[in-house]
């Protein structure tokens, strides 16, 4: 603000203008930085930590080789020593359709190498889930129901699909938001299988 006593010489105001410019510059830089970011993608604090345990009931059996009976309870704590893939999905989720084939094929491939795949139904009903699996031509691995989305909250879910890779020692090794591809799945699984097992 100009004070009336001191009529400012022109040169000084140039300095003031460039100072104002210096204030605006970081804001513009910040916005430019923002353009390179996706606000929907939030890094999860979970990778590296122990994966939260759960006990959820199977509602879709999966195919021979990975089959579990409907009503069986899957507990993560009983799967220690094995690599586990948890895929949160829903029948209303469009991205889940895109990743379905990759998941079901890679799961069948890796079943013989001791990798357990489980689908976790998120915010959906088992009947709608079963219908969806039929429509999609089957799912090679079993799916469990998460009736009050408590497991989803435990895993810090933002939406579906999200896929968690759990290492042999029960830690969350990697979390993927959005549809997975077969390359991504096999790459992650190979590196997890190569790692030494839990004591």
């Amino acid at each position: 603000m100009t004070t009336p006593e001191t009529p400012a010489p022109a040169g000084m105001n140039w300095r003031r203008a460039s100072m104002a410019g210096l204030v605006a510059l970081p804001i513009i830089a910040l916005l430019a930085f923002g353009l390179t970011r996706d606000p929907g993608e939030i890094n999860s604090p979970l990778p590296g930590k122990m994966a939260p345990d759960f006990a959820l009931e199977v509602f879709a059996t999966g195919e021979p080789g990975q089959q579990r009976a409907v009503g069986d309870t899957i507990r993560l704590s009983e799967l220690r020593g094995q690599v586990v893939v948890l895929n949160f999905w829903a029948s209303w989720c469009l991205e889940c359709r895109r990743e379905h084939q990759a998941l079901t094929e890679v799961a069948a491939d890796y079943a013989t190498r001791g990798v357990k795949f489980y689908g976790v139904l998120y915010n959906d009903s088992p009947s709608a889930g079963k219908r969806w699996i039929e429509q999609m031509g089957g799912q090679s691995y079993p799916s469990v129901n998460d009736p009050r989305t408590r497991t989803a909250i435990d895993y810090g879910l933002y939406g579906a699909p999200e896929t968690f890779f759990i290492s042999k020692d029960g830690r969350v090794a990697y979390k993927h938001i959005g549809a997975v591809t077969d390359q991504l799945l096999s790459q992650k699984l190979d590196s997890l299988l190569a790692a030494p097992g839990a004591p």
Partner: peptide, 22 residues
């Protein structure tokens, strides 16, 4: 946004004498 601010700063600076309040 950058052009707006730049143009404004330049014009304000160029008008410094006219903007003195008495």
């Amino acid at each position: 946004i950058a052009i707006t601010l730049l143009a404004s700063f330049v014009l304000v600076a160029g008008n410094s004498e006219r903007l003195v309040s008495f």
